[in-house]
Amino acid sequence: MASEPREYLRIERLPHVWCPGCGHGMITHALACAMAELELDPKQTAVIGGIGCSGRTAFLFDMDSMHTTHGRAVVFATGLKLVRPALTIVLALGDGDAIGIGGNHFIHACRRNLDLTAIIYNNAIYGQTGGQVAPTTPPAKKSTTSPYGNLEHPFDIARLAIAAGATYVARTTSFDFADMVKFIKRGIQHKGFSVIEVLTHCPTYYGRLNDLRDPYEMLHTIKEQTVPIEEWDQLSEEERAGKIVIGELHRQVRPEFVESYYRLIAQMQRLQENSVDGH
């Protein structure tokens, strides 16, 4: 067991590849802290990422890790978790990865409710490929492929996850370090599919294209848009406009899929034994 965050990291892989000022390092740090506070056994823990800036998280954790094809991390993890139920699996996903190219897998993973923890690094843009519009880019915001402002309506990832059946859903920002650690810990401890959406900043592309070049200023801008769930309920519709609710948004107890499947196996094998005995 390790209990220092650095003990969970492949220190020799640092510095990471993310841009100066990027929020991804903060989320990754929060994940390492959460693992340390939970004293997870690195031998029984795995990090799986997809493609995009967030996918690079997988390279940084000193444990079994996988960097999958774009959008498919959640299904690679589904196969892995089913045959290795004892593994604690954390998914490091980007917004484009999770709900753009991987949207179908994401909603089905929510529905299936496997005991996986998905951290979604939501920077509202495709960073690694050079700042293209994402399914999370707010209306009118600019990207290299929405040069006149985004005409599309974005997904609200946390609400999508709740609607699709995820059983633990929290949202925070990379500004709220303590909450990131707390929610990731609770997500890992929760038996079922957990989604922790982290609103984070991409000064390199999103910031540069939308007049938020300074990382610190951008981080603050994101934070200022958010309202804690405790206050959200008191707000009128007009007051909610342009605001994003954060906090623990959803928690539900529902049969976890891996357990259900292993119960089925036990049941079928008992039947087999009985029928063999019977003959």
């Binding site: 498919r72 993890a77 978790k81 079928m268």
Partner: peptide, 30 residues
């Protein structure tokens, strides 16, 4: 299930092979 194995119907064929690769890295013949 009778032999302790797992059969999963996925949301599409991309997911199918993804899950198979994940399971193979978990040690199963898939």
């Amino acid at each position: 299930p009778k032999v302790g194995g797992i059969c999963l119907q996925m949301e599409d064929e991309i997911a199918s092979l993804s899950a198979v690769i994940g399971a193979s890295w978990g040690g199963a013949k898939a």
